Simulated assay, not measured.
Amino acid sequence: MTSVLYLFCSAAPPVHDVADVIRDAQERGFDVCLGLTPTAALWLGDQLPVLAELTGHPVRSEYKLPGEPDVWPKADVVAFAPATFNSVNSWSLGLTHDFVIGVVAEGIGKGIPIVAMPCVNAAYVQHRQFERSVSELRAMGVEVLYGEGGFVPNQPGQGRPKEYPWPLVLDAAERLALA
């Protein structure tokens, strides 16, 4: 049976590899629905039709209007990567101004398994709220791949987006979908 994966992405450089990640997820047996923060949607603007064709579902970055039908099947698991400093903190604090943040915030309450992997630089993680946010999400049952065995921040301006450990996110999503 195919599991439905909601793949959510913030605007961080690894988002540009999302088509390859979708293909990898599909090879693992996932039916992928792609959700983007508004800035990530802007970054990928000209690719959105191709990504929708690749997934077979509309790419979403905005809330639907009241009364509109859901255009995606129900999620079996959510993977949120890359998750930026802003997205991690907004989610942890329950600030659901963006569609993807609203879905993952509500997903915790619905008991949907969620894995997240930040993509932040070492300067951002010096802000005390970031560690509190990661701890809070973990306490709510979110698997956060950060630190040893997950994403390790680079110094500002020294990011290596091609080295972002996407397979870790999909491995965790597979495990969570089977649990």
Score class of each variant (00 low, 15 high):
L36G: 04
H57M: 01
A123N: 10
R128K: 13
V77Q: 04
A173G: 12
D46V: 12
V169T: 11
D46I: 09
I114M: 08
R23D: 11
P38A: 08
A105C: 14
Q155I: 05
A139F: 03
V103G: 00
K74G: 12
L65T: 04
N154G: 01
P161T: 02
G29C: 15
G109P: 12
E148T: 10
Y124F: 14
M1W: 09
D31F: 03
M117D: 02
Q26Y: 04
D20Q: 15
L145G: 11
L145N: 12
L44S: 05
T55C: 11
G107F: 03
D24W: 06
L178N: 14
G150R: 07
S61V: 00
H97V: 07
E143W: 02
L5H: 06
A79Q: 09
A177V: 09
G159Y: 05
L42C: 10
V125K: 14
L44F: 01
A105P: 02
H57I: 01
E68T: 01
K110E: 07
G147F: 11
R23E: 15
N89L: 08
P167I: 02
I22T: 10
L178K: 15
E131W: 05
P13A: 05
E143P: 00
M140Q: 09
V134E: 11
E148A: 13
A177P: 13
W166R: 14
Q129L: 14
M117Q: 07
L93D: 08
H57L: 01
P165C: 12
L7R: 08
P49C: 06
V100G: 00
S133T: 06
S10R: 04
V32L: 04
Y63F: 15
G29W: 12
D17E: 13
I101N: 03
V50G: 09
A105W: 11
A116T: 15
P49H: 05
Q126H: 15
A25Q: 08
D171Q: 13
A25I: 06
L44R: 00
T55N: 02
L42E: 08
F80E: 00
V115K: 06
G35K: 00
A12F: 02
L7Y: 10
G157Y: 01
A25D: 05
G157A: 05
W43I: 01
Q155P: 03
L65Y: 03
L44N: 03
S10Q: 06
G107N: 06
P58C: 10
F8E: 13
P38S: 10
R28S: 13
P161S: 10
P82E: 04
D20G: 15
G45Y: 11
P49Q: 12
K162R: 10
A75F: 02
A41I: 01
L176Q: 15
K74V: 12
G94N: 08
Y6T: 02
L178I: 12
M140Y: 06
A52K: 04
N89W: 02
E148N: 09
N89R: 03
A11E: 08
L34I: 07
L176S: 15
E136G: 05
R138Y: 05
S10H: 06
L51T: 07
S135V: 08
V152D: 08
T39W: 00
S3Y: 13
Q158N: 07
G109V: 09
V77C: 13
V15A: 01
D70Y: 06
W72A: 03
V50M: 11
W166Q: 14
E163F: 04
E136R: 14
R132Y: 11
L5R: 09
P69H: 11
I22Y: 06
A75H: 02
G150A: 15
P156Y: 10
S3V: 07
G157T: 04
A41P: 02
S135M: 11
